[in-house]
Design a protein around this nucleic acid. Sequence first.
RNA 1: GCCCCCAUCGUCUAGCGGCCUAGGACGCCGGGUUCUCAUCCCGGUAACAGGGGUUCGAGUCCCCUUGGGGGUACCA
Length: 541
Amino acid sequence: MIVTRFAPSPTGYLHVGGARTALFNWLLARQSGGKFLLRIEDTDIKRNTPTAARQVMDDLRWLGIDWDEGPEAGGDHGPYFQSQRREIYDRYIETLIAEQKAYYCFDTPEEIDRYRKEAEARKQTFLYPRPSRFPDAGEAARARAEGRPVTVRLAVTEREPIVVRDLLRGEVTFNPAEMGDFVIQKSDGFPTYHMAVVIDDELMGVTHVIRGQEHLMNTPCHQLLQKALGFRIPDYVHMSVTVSDSGGKLSKRERPEHLRAEIARRQDADRDALALAGGIRRDDLEAFLAKKTVPDMPAIDAMAAHLGVSLPEINVVDFFRSGYLPETMVNFLALLGWNPGDGREVMGRAELIEAFDLSRMTKSNSLFDRKKLMSFNTEHIKRTDRAVLTGHFRAYLEAIGSPVAGADDGLLAHLIAVNDGARTLAQIEQKCRFAFVPDEGFEYDPDAVKKVLRKEGAMAILSLLAERLVSLADFSAEGLEGMLRSLAEEKQVGLGKIAQPLRVAITGTTISPPIFDAIGLLGLERTLARIRRTIELFTDF
RNA sequence: GCCCCCAUCGUCUAGCGGCCUAGGACGCCGGGUUCUCAUCCCGGUAACAGGGGUUCGAGUCCCCUUGGGGGUACCA
C-alpha cells in the first residue's frame, strides 16, 4: 500500500507551494487507495509559531485535503508532532554513536563559522574535520557541564557514489567526498531535519516522498542515514518549484515586500494613521520600512487594507479571502507540474484523483499565473453545486466581515444566481453589498456621479422612474424589465440611458447585478427612498 | 566559487524519431451579444534558447554553450 505524507514546519500560514506539495502527496494516496498522513515538523523551537499548526490544518481542511493519520486524526504511529518524539530520536542517535557511526562535537557556532570562512578563503568547500578519535559520553557530559554546545554528527565514511533514484528525474549521482559530516542532533537536543525525517518516514511506513526540488540535495544525506540505520529507502519524487509572476521563487515574503514598496511610493501617506491601522507602534513601522523587521501578517493585511492596496496572494488563506474557491485552488495547483494528458484542464476533485499519475508529472519550474487562476475560478463558480457554493460564500462573507453575511442561505443562493458569470466570490459580494447598507448610509462614487448623475436629463428620468415604480403592479424582475423597456421605448432611448442613472441612484456605483435584480434586492420602498435621496442631493436649483 | 535540477507561444502545457506547414488552455489583440461589471460567441497574434553531433529523418537521442531555478546551516 502506498503511504504518503505532508510534513510542514509550523512557521506560519500554509502557502501555495506547501499546499501543492500536500496536494500531490494526497492525490497519490487517494488515487491508489493508500494512506496520507500529516506530520508536524516542529524541531526548530526558535522558528515555530504557536498557532501555525492549527492554521496549516485549517487551510488543508479548507482545500479538502484530509489526512488518515496525524494530529486530530490519530493513528498507530503517533505522536505526529516531532517535538513529542524526542525519546525515539535519542534512541537512534545513541545507537549510531555506540556503533561509531556518529560522534559528539563541541564546537561553538563561531568556531564553525571560522572554519567555513577559512575554507572559502582557500576556495574549498567546507568539510567538517572529523576527529581521529570520537569523544565518549563522559566527555560529552563534561563539555555540557562546562557550557559548551554539544552536537552529534554522522561520520560520512561512504566512498562509493550515492545514487538517488528519483521517480521523476531518474538517477542523480552524488559524490560523498564533498558532503562532509553533517549534524544529526543539535545542541538543544533536538534532532536535525535530516535525522527526524528519516526516522519518522521509516517508522510511519512512508513509501513515497513527494517534496520540493529544494530537497533533492538533502536526499543523499537521508540515504546515508537510512543505510546507517538499516532502513529501507522510500521512492522519491522531487517536484519542480513554483515561481511567482513577479519573478523569483514564490515566497511568503512577497506580501510584506509589496506593501513596503507601496508605502515608499506614497510619500504623502499618514504614517501615524497607518501604524495605528496595523496595530503596531510607529517605531515598528519605520523599522519595517527600513527593512529591519517584518510585522506579522494581520498587521500587514490591516495596513494594506488601510491604504486600499491589494497584496499578491501567497498563503492559502489569502486566496480564500480574495474570493477563490477551494476547488479552484486544488485544480490549479494540481496542474502546476502535472496534466492528465488529454487536454482536460478544469477538473473537479474526484476527476483529479481518478486521473492523477506520477508518470505525467512535469520536470520544469512553473510560474504561478494569477490570470489563469482567475479563469479557473470563473469556471468553478459555474460548475460547483449551488448548495456547496452557498456554503463557500457564507464562509467568505464571515471571514471578511461583510454586511452581506447577515443574509440567509436562500438569499445568498439568490445573490449567486443573479451574479451569473462572476469571477470571484469577492465580485459577488462587491456587487450586492449595496443592498445591505442603510439607505442613507452609502457613498456615491465620484466618477459615477460625474459620468451619469450630472448628465443632462438624469434627474428627470429618475423622477419619472419614481412615479412609474409607485404605480407598478408587477414588482418581479420580469415586471420591472417590462416597465423599464417600455419607458426606454417611449423616450426613444436605449435601456442604458435609464438603467445607468437608476443604478447609480440606488447603489452609488456603475457596477451592480442586472438592474432589475438590483431593484428586486432592495424592494420598492428602499428603491424609492434611494431615488428620492439621489434627486435631492444632485438636483441643482 | 562548488554541487544539483531544468529548458516548446507572454504563461501553463501536448509532443515520448517520421502522424508537427508544432496542438490545447489562459492572456493579449480585433469583432459580435449586452442595462453596468462580468459572462458568452467568433476571429487573430505567438514558441521548439544557440551551436555541434547521431540518424535516411530530430522539438523528440547525445555533447557543449547560454539562460533560469535550487542547494551549499546546530532551518526545514
